[in-house]
């Protein structure tokens, strides 16, 4: 199984939202809905402050509870990877997967009735390209690749830099990493 990961450097992320717009256009995300979003976390008291920006999306968890709780198999893993996809033709729109995601990342109830979500742009990954959000980011703070390949940029970054994932306590083993 190939484990794909996204590694985002919070030192250079400026919270500009280009990743969000790029996803919308690349993937024709229905108006008003988002597959990714940006969070600004500020702590401290003026003028002693710290701000972190995080571009967030589905974590393509190694233990994806959205997949385990889907009653029809519509939520599934793409090929032999951790990329979590939804097959519209199997989706009943029961919304169990929405409730099953601790990251509230199953955002898009497509107007046509099925669940739509971040695909890690597998249609681009398949062609050896980075996901649309990654390749649009003006600060180049986003990186994408396989964790199985020790020479990939993402592997190297995780080896050399401090990082975190969101709420590791969920046990879902998320694969979007934030460099600190």
């Amino acid at each position: 199984m190939t484990r794909f990961a996204m590694v985002i450097d919070t030192r250079t992320c400026i919270g500009c939202g280009d990743c969000v717009v790029a996803c919308k256009t690349e993937n024709n995300v229905p108006e008003g809905l988002n597959r990714d979003w940006v969070v600004e976390a500020t702590s401290g008291t003026y003028p002693d402050l710290k701000t972190e920006f995080r571009s967030e999306r589905c974590n393509h968890c190694s233990n994806p509870t959205c997949v385990t709780l889907c009653p029809t198999g519509a939520s599934h893993l793409w090929k032999d990877t951790n990329i979590v996809l939804v097959e519209p033709e199997k989706c009943t729109g029961c919304k169990a997967c929405i409730a099953a995601c601790p990251y509230d990342a199953r955002l898009v109830m497509h107007p046509d009735g099925y669940i739509d979500k971040c695909t890690f742009c597998h249609h681009r990954v398949e062609k050896g390209m980075d996901p649309a959000c990654v390749s649009s980011c003006p600060t180049r703070c986003m990186h994408f690749g396989s964790l199985d390949d020790p020479s990939s940029e993402v592997s190297k970054l995780l080896k050399t830099r401090e990082y975190k994932v969101l709420s590791p306590e969920t046990g879902n083993e998320p694969n979007v990493y934030y460099l600190l």
Binding site: L33, N34, V38, E40, A41, T42
Partner: peptide, 12 residues
């Protein structure tokens, strides 16, 4: 104070 704010609009 701790702020965790969605800075891109989301009304999914």
């Amino acid at each position: 104070m701790k702020e965790e704010l969605l800075v891109t609009a989301r009304g999914n």
